[in-house]
Amino acid sequence: MTAMDERGADARALVRDLEGLLLVEAARAESRAAAGRFTGRLPWLTDSQREEVERQYTEEHMVLTRRAWDRTAARSRELRAEYEEAYRVLQRRAFAWCLVGAALFMGATLELSRGWG
């Protein structure tokens, strides 16, 4: 691996990390907004109670979001493995049919050359 390759890999890793951080921050903002909407329907809460409910709601929402992401990632890995296996099977079949076609072509060529000779 060259220095350019390493820098490219580092840059890709940095971009992935940044995307991850942005995604988490967006989920956190969404959780806080949902918590605010929830406590908005509870007008009898004091300010400190409202803050505590919003904090706990936000934490729980983030836990649920993380679980959903984990399930999605796991399913993505499963599907990738399934598709890669299907692709390998198709590659083997295509290669086998190419060999059959080449053998038939060679057989036909030999048979034709015998008829002309």
Rank of each mutant, 00 (worst) to 15 (best):
A33L: 04
A26H: 11
A73F: 00
A34C: 05
V63M: 10
Q56K: 09
L21M: 05
W69S: 04
E84F: 09
L104E: 07
W97N: 08
A34P: 00
R93Q: 15
E82A: 11
R7E: 11
E85R: 14
A81R: 09
C98M: 09
A34Y: 00
L99E: 11
A27F: 04
R50N: 08
M4E: 12
A9W: 10
R37D: 09
E84S: 08
Y87V: 05
D17T: 02
A102P: 02
W69N: 02
D47F: 14
L22M: 07
V89S: 11
R71M: 04
L42G: 14
R88G: 07
R55M: 11
R114S: 15
G117I: 13
A13G: 08
A26R: 10
S48E: 15
E111L: 14
L45Y: 05
A33H: 06
A13M: 12
Q91C: 09
L18D: 01
E52A: 15
H61I: 01
M106A: 15
L90K: 13
R77F: 06
V24K: 00
D47S: 15
P43Y: 06
L21A: 06
T58M: 02
S76W: 04
A81K: 07
E30R: 00
L110W: 13
Y87C: 06
S76I: 01
Q56G: 03
W44P: 04
E6T: 14
T39H: 01
L42Y: 15
V53N: 01
S113M: 12
W116N: 05
G36V: 02
D10V: 12
A33T: 03
E25G: 04
R37G: 05
Q49I: 10
T65C: 06
H61R: 07
V63K: 09
M1V: 08
